[in-house]
Write a protein that binds this DNA or RNA. Structure first.
Lengths: 376, 376
DNA sequence: TACCATACCGGGAACGTTCCCGCTTGCCAT
DNA sequence: ATGGCAAGCGGGAACGTTCCCGGTATGGTA
């Protein structure tokens, strides 16, 4: 169709500041070096006030056994000397760093960023710093990430598994180290792990039930790699919903896509249309293939949803921007992130006696015009 | 139009593991507590081998003055004792933490996650850990984030300014502390700061020039808050392109939207259509308002691009999923993230004598069917 | 034989905190 | 007058590293 052309494709170009700015900079810089001879520490405050280090430490942490006026003196001197507490030293001494590690397969799409948003929000509220890694869907990087995080003395790890992870020794090592481990969305088939996941089964089940209500009888399914719990559960939800609606399961209508892309969805749709009896609905494990299918249908002037109804999964932002708007399943990413942190906090409080817990979030099925036939 | 209905709206429900799993867990847990009596340190290895701590330290860091066979013995004992180096202690002693701080206004949309992807990729390649904060477009949180990061002894801060930031003292404090500070995308109007930004002016200029080439003569503009450099530069690019095309600047055609949302774009479009002489093109500072405008036009059966051409900015993923596909400007987020880290690394190497540098990325204008009138 | 350089390793201080223990002072009850 | 007790503070060890300054062998050279 319309090929996107490119007007400007030049690569990055460095451009230094004009000379007046550079001059101004030098000034600032000189002022800097003379001031920042040495960062003020707790000892600096102590010697300046003739107090003991321990007293200053307790004053700053608002300990009860320190008089209010000495506390105030310490605080004043602290801001006067521009004192910055050293989190590293405190962490070393206290035995915990206040850092929470997060590993995601990648930072793209809308789901993982949404979860990260929930995680960061909740973690910072609880006083934790978030250290972020991405595994790039690679077990080796995942292992390296976990090792890094353990070295950084994180107090817990929240992780969504990479798609190439089949053995779980690196996860077990984390647990044996006594570090709380919480999975979100993608979790391994391990007992004794905490996790927060979406009820993918129920989401898929609900979508198919909805399609049946709309009069669909031959519902096709686009699936992803089955070793991931999420895809497996979505598929089973599809199968169970068919059975519960006394519809036959037709393997011809099920495609395991090589990747969950738009192109793969388009290809799948083309294959479906070549069938002797093509489907009257397509349910895709992810929104992108559904859009691919939609474009194929629109090219061929097949009406959506009248001839073929369509539903995706994940409720990507674009589902409400295309026309017809795409029915999908909201994954509640932010809630998932928050729940994962909450689970971590539970395990962190009573590290002696935590029992692994699983939270299953109820999906929300967003019914839109791509599947809504009888507009009331 | 089609109201999205909700089938399942239950909130989160906790569900404990079934009893057999819990039993299995107890077993695992007991094994854990007995093993993890104490994390092995460098001293543990030293005493086990009858070596000095310093020797072990140098052996593990592959120092030249240690015999190869003792190195090997140390390494073996390390894995035998399941030794995990303590990054905190090393950081405290060495005076640097190996942590890079990142502050973004929010983790949503597609731009910031893309930048973060570039940052994380580049930083981890350089051996840095990434600590992530979001300011939620709030100066107070931004200040708190920076303070936190400084306490965490980060070796540098990469930041994209919040939209509510008007004074820059917290930035100056970072610089006076000698901590490298690099802005990306949104930067303050400060001299002597390093930054990597998109050439927003050129991007906007190019889009308008392209629209003019397509025969458009009355080009409307949707703008965002002008105190942010990005919006200001886009607006100026628009103005300069008009002038360079000897087209009149008509203030009636320029809207400063309250927020860069779809609804705001729709409202703006409606107002534009009420004009005595409506525009023949709309250029929006962000993609979402452009989609809002598009929906209004499609409702009224106004043809895009024949009657009114359309262009957005940011090249959000959905621009290629809607129809007609939306012309937009690619912001090169990943490249921006990588460049920001590279800039930091430069400043980090020669902290004594770095000159602030600015990198300006060339935008790519993705011409698509929403603005392409004469299909060759 | 005396001497020096090199290879290899130990001892110990330091990084900035926290926390346990102990000391003084003042006050009240016995 | 004696004891007890709490408030308020100081001293110092410890957390796990790294790094400087040594020390002891070994081997080679004058």
């Amino acid at each position: 169709m319309y090929e996107a052309s490119t007007l400007e494709a030049n690569s990055a170009s460095n451009c230094l500041l004009p000379s007046p700015h550079r001059a101004e900079f030098r000034l600032v810089f000189l002022k800097t070096t003379t001031l920042a001879t040495k960062q003020a520490s707790i000892t600096t405050i102590a010697t300046h006030l003739g107090l003991a280090v321990s007293t200053v430490s307790r004053a700053l942490s608002d300990h009860a056994n320190i008089r209010e006026d000495t506390k105030e003196r310490v605080r004043q001197m602290a801001i006067k000397l521009n004192y910055q507490p050293n989190h590293l030293a405190a962490g070393l001494r206290k035995g915990h760093s206040g850092i929470l590690g997060v590993v995601v397969p990648h930072i793209s799409g809308s789901f993982f960023p949404t979860v990260m948003h929930g995680i960061e929000k909740m973690a910072s509220k609880a006083g934790f710093h978030v250290m972020l890694c991405q595994s790039n869907e690679d077990v080796k990087q995942e292992r390296a990430n976990i090792k890094m995080l353990l070295n950084a003395q994180v107090e817990g790890i929240l992780i969504s598994m990479s798609s190439t992870t089949y053995d779980f020794q690196h996860f077990e090592k984390v647990q044996s180290q006594g570090v709380p481990l919480v999975f979100f969305d993608r979790m391994p088939d391990m007992p004794s792990t905490s996790a927060v996941v979406l009820d993918d089964h129920q989401g898929a089940f609900g979508v198919v039930k909805h399609l049946v209500e709309q009069g669909c009888k031959r519902i096709a399914f686009f699936s992803g790699p089955q070793h991931l719990n999420i895809n497996k559960n979505r598929f089973e939800g599809y199968v169970d919903a068919l059975e519960s609606s006394s519809l036959d399961f037709d393997p011809q209508l099920v495609f395991q896509l090589p990747d969950l892309s738009k192109a793969a969805g388009a290809e799948g749709m083309n294959l479906l249309l070549q069938l002797a009896s093509p489907p009257d609905a397509v349910f895709s494990s992810y929104d992108l293939p559904a859009v691919g299918a939609l474009e194929v249908l629109q090219e061929r002037n097949i009406r959506v949803p009248q001839d073929i109804a369509l539903s995706g999964f994940s409720n990507e932002p674009f589902t409400t921007l295309i026309s017809p708007r795409l029915t999908s399943v909201e994954q509640r990413g932010e809630l998932m992130g928050e729940a994962a942190v909450r689970l971590f906090l539970q395990m962190h409080k009573r590290t002696d006696n935590y029992s692994p817990q699983r939270i299953m979030l109820k999906p929300q099925i967003e019914v839109r015009s791509s599947s809504l036939r009888n507009i009331v």
